[in-house]
C-alpha cells in the first residue's frame, strides 16, 4: 500500500518536472516560429504599404496607407514577364532532362546484376569530392558552343549525384527482386520492365526528384550570370538580382518619376513587391508538396 503511494507520488513529481519542460519547449518553439515567420510576413505587408510609413518605422503588424503602386509598376514591366517565361521554360525542360537521366541511371545502378556497377558508382561519387572548378567547367561549356543558349543552364547541371543515390536507394529497397525475375520469365525486357513496372511503383520518388530539381532550376541565378549575356534569355532570378541588389531594372520602372526621393521610395516598394511576385509559385505549391521533400531528405539520410 505504502509502496504504491510512493510510486504514485514519484509519478506525479516526475510529470511536474516534465510539464515545466513542455511549457518551456512550447514557448521556445513559438519564439522560433515568430523569428521565421515575421520577416516573411513583413515583406508581404510592406509590399503594399506606403513607403513613407516604412521609412518612418510605422509599419509593424498591419499594412499602413495601402497602395498598389509597387505591384502596378511591376506588372507593367515587360522584363519581369519575360523573365517569368524564361524561368518556366528552363525549369520545365531542365527538370525533364534531370529526372530522365537521374532515374534511368539510378535504376541501372540499383540492379545487382549490372556488371561494373561499383566502377560506375565510384566514377559518379568522385565528382562529389573533387571537381575541376569554375574556370575549366566554363571553358568546356564555352567550347561546346553552349554560351548564350538555354542549354548552358540545363546540360552542365543535368545530373546531381546526391539525387542518383537517393533514387538508387529507393529502387533497391522498394522494387522486389522477385518482380524482376517473374517479368524476365515472361520475356519482359529491362526497358519495358522499367517503364511499365518500376516507374508506376515509384511515384513518390519521381515526385521527389521533380520537386528537388524544379526548385533548383527556379531558384538558380549563378549559371545564368556566367553563361548568358543576352538579356532576352535572362531567367527571373537574374532580373530579380538586378532589381534587388543592383537597383538597375527598377530605374526603368520609375523613369516617369521626377524627384529623387520619390524614385527611391517607389523603388523600395518595388523591391518588396518583386520578392512576393517571384516567390508566389513556390509559396502556392509548397504546403502541398512538403511531404515529398521531407521524404527525399529521409531516403538520402538513411543511406548517408
Amino acid at each position: 500500500m505504502s509502496l504504491l503511494a510512493l510510486k504514485n507520488k514519484k509519478i506525479t513529481r516526475r510529470s511536474k518536472e516534465d510539464r515545466v519542460f513542455d511549457i518551456i519547449n512550447v514557448f521556445l518553439t513559438a519564439m522560433i516560429l515568430i523569428l521565421v515567420v515575421y520577416p516573411l510576413y513583413f515583406i508581404v505587408i510592406a509590399s503594399f504599404s506606403d513607403p513613407n510609413m516604412i521609412y518612418e518605422g510605422k509599419v509593424w503588424l498591419l499594412p499602413k496607407e495601402i497602395t498598389f503602386e509597387g505591384y502596378e509598376r511591376i506588372f507593367r514591366d515587360s522584363k519581369i514577364w519575360l523573365g517569368y517565361k524564361n524561368s518556366i521554360i528552363y525549369t520545365v525542360v531542365g527538370t525533364f532532362v534531370n529526372v530522365a537521366f537521374t532515374l534511368m541511371a539510378a535504376y541501372a545502378l540499383s540492379r545487382k546484376d549490372l556488371y561494373g556497377r561499383n566502377v560506375f558508382m565510384f566514377l559518379f561519387l568522385m565528382t562529389m569530392f573533387f571537381s575541376g572548378g569554375l574556370i575549366p567547367t566554363y571553358l568546356v561549356v564555352k567550347n561546346l558552343g553552349l554560351l548564350n543558349t538555354m542549354w548552358a543552364l540545363i546540360l552542365p547541371k543535368a545530373v546531381a549525384v546526391w539525387n542518383v543515390i537517393v533514387a538508387k536507394t529507393y529502387f533497391e529497397t522498394s522494387i522486389p527482386n522477385e518482380l524482376l525475375e517473374a517479368a524476365k520469365m515472361d520475356g519482359c525486357s529491362d526497358a519495358k520492365f522499367f517503364a511499365k513496372i518500376v516507374l508506376p511503383l515509384s511515384k513518390p520518388i519521381v515526385a521527389v526528384m521533380v520537386l528537388f530539381y524544379a526548385v533548383g532550376h527556379w531558384n538558380s541565378y549563378f549559371d545564368a550570370l556566367i553563361y548568358l549575356n543576352n538579356e532576352n534569355l535572362y531567367p527571373l532570378q537574374l532580373i530579380l538580382r538586378n532589381i534587388l541588389i543592383q537597383n538597375q531594372a527598377s530605374t526603368m520602372m520609375i523613369s516617369d518619376l521626377d524627384s529623387l526621393a520619390a524614385k527611391q521610395r517607389v523603388s523600395e516598394l518595388i523591391k518588396y513587391g518583386v520578392i512576393i511576385v517571384a516567390s508566389v509559385p513556390l509559396l502556392i505549391v509548397y504546403p502541398f508538396v512538403q511531404k515529398y521533400f521531407v521524404k527525399g531528405v529521409m531516403i538520402g539520410g538513411i543511406k548517408g
Binding site: 534511368m104 541511371a105 545502378l109 560506375f120 571537381s131 575541376g132 575549366p136 561549356v141 546540360l155
Partner: peptide, 18 residues
C-alpha cells in the same frame, strides 16, 4: 540507361578535371 548520365559526368566533370 546509364549512358546519358555517364556522358554527362565525363563531359561536365571529368573533362574539366583534365
Amino acid at each position: 540507361f546509364l549512358l546519358p548520365a555517364l556522358i554527362y559526368f565525363i563531359v561536365f566533370h571529368y573533362l574539366p578535371m583534365y
